[in-house]
């Protein structure tokens, strides 16, 4: 009961935030937080629930970004379908990768994702007729769209905010569904002990391929949004290992295998990064790194996990107090 109330309050806050907060910079920051949430959630499905550590998730983000961009620039497909198609293309790309890489276990799988990411980056760099190579693709104008009879102003940030807010909700709901269904149980089982999972008849390759496909779909959608919002993609920006690692950080700091973890992780890391940078021009990464160390050492379940524990303790205390009274 309390939970539903909290969720409703969260939704209302999410909905009115850009109207209350007038500063375009803060709206921009919120957009970045939500975009990173989707990316963190994407990584979390594979890395958190299934325990398959991927170092190459930028592949799917890049695939989504390039698909949306190319469809718009070369075929004139509206980005709003393009973003969705970007997710689908990322998903399709993930299938052969999954079938090949999931025959490997543990660190071998992680290494193979790194290799795939590098291969895809090199393809994007050299397939010039399609991707414009290292020059990258740049959008200067977005197509006119009207919503409820009103033309949408793409120069303002509010429409982008609502688009990414909806995508974030989809990502969180998807994570919730995965955690509640049979697939989720399969994933948790194979994360804990892959041999036992196989012995009770779980097709672990298939389960992991499904997890990867869902994960890639989310990363691809986020990539499509990235392309439309930032309007410029080049291979080194969207296929970089740095991006993959940031997704991993967000999922881990937020809390692995939790629904709200990536959201908390993105809020904490984006705002922290921003405030450190503002105060220390070139020393800010030291503080950022220090925070990561503290988070990993003292909050192995992530910030979300820690909050949950504290919350439970509080409730317990209250109950005890009630008991004595």
């Amino acid at each position: 009961m309390k939970k539903t109330l909290l969720i409703i309050i969260g939704l209302i806050v999410l909905g009115i935030a850009p109207i209350v907060i007038r500063s375009p910079f803060f709206v921009h920051l919120m957009i970045m937080v939500l975009m990173w949430t989707v990316l963190g959630a994407s990584w979390n499905i594979l890395g958190g629930y299934a325990g398959q550590v991927s170092f190459g998730h930028a592949t799917f983000l890049g695939a989504g970004a390039y698909t949306t961009m190319i469809l718009y620039l070369k075929c004139g497909v509206d980005p709003w379908y393009g973003i969705f198609l970007g997710g689908l293309v990322a998903m399709v790309i993930s299938l052969p990768i999954g079938f090949i890489c999931f025959r490997l276990r543990g660190p071998y799988f992680s290494l193979s994702t790194l290799a795939v990411a590098e291969i895809v980056r090199l393809v994007a760099l050299n397939w010039e007729s399609l991707t414009a190579g290292p020059v990258g693709l740049l959008i200067t104008t977005l197509p006119g769209v009207s919503f409820l009879g009103q033309p949408i102003n793409w120069e303002s940030k509010v429409p982008f905010y609502y688009i990414i807010a909806i995508i974030t909700l989809i990502a969180l709901i998807m994570t919730y569904i995965v955690s509640r269904t049979r697939v989720g149980a399969y994933l948790l089982a194979l994360r804990e002990d892959i041999d036992s999972a196989e012995s009770i008849g779980i097709n672990t390759v298939k389960a992991r391929v499904v997890a990867l496909a869902l994960s890639a779909f989310l990363a691809g959608i986020a990539g499509g949004f990235y392309a439309m919002y930032l309007r410029y993609v080049d291979p080194d920006a969207v296929f970089s290992i740095g991006l993959s690692v940031e997704m991993l950080f967000i999922a881990i700091v937020g809390g692995l295998a939790t629904v709200g973890g990536p959201l908390i992780g993105a809020i904490v890391l984006v705002t922290l990064g921003e405030s450190f940078r503002e105060h220390f021009l070139s020393g800010h990464l030291i503080f950022y790194g220090f925070f990561m160390m503290v988070a990993i050492r003292y909050m192995p379940d992530g910030v979300w996990g820690r909050l949950n524990v504290l919350f439970k303790k509080l409730r317990l205390k209250k109950d005890v107090n009630h008991g004595t009274a």
């Binding site: 920051l29 970045m32 990235y226 930032l230």
Partner: peptide
């Protein structure tokens, strides 16, 4: 790149 967009927004706004 994403950070370049963020700091530009910040400098301007």
């Amino acid at each position: 790149n994403p950070l370049a967009a963020t700091v530009t927004e910040k400098l301007i706004n």
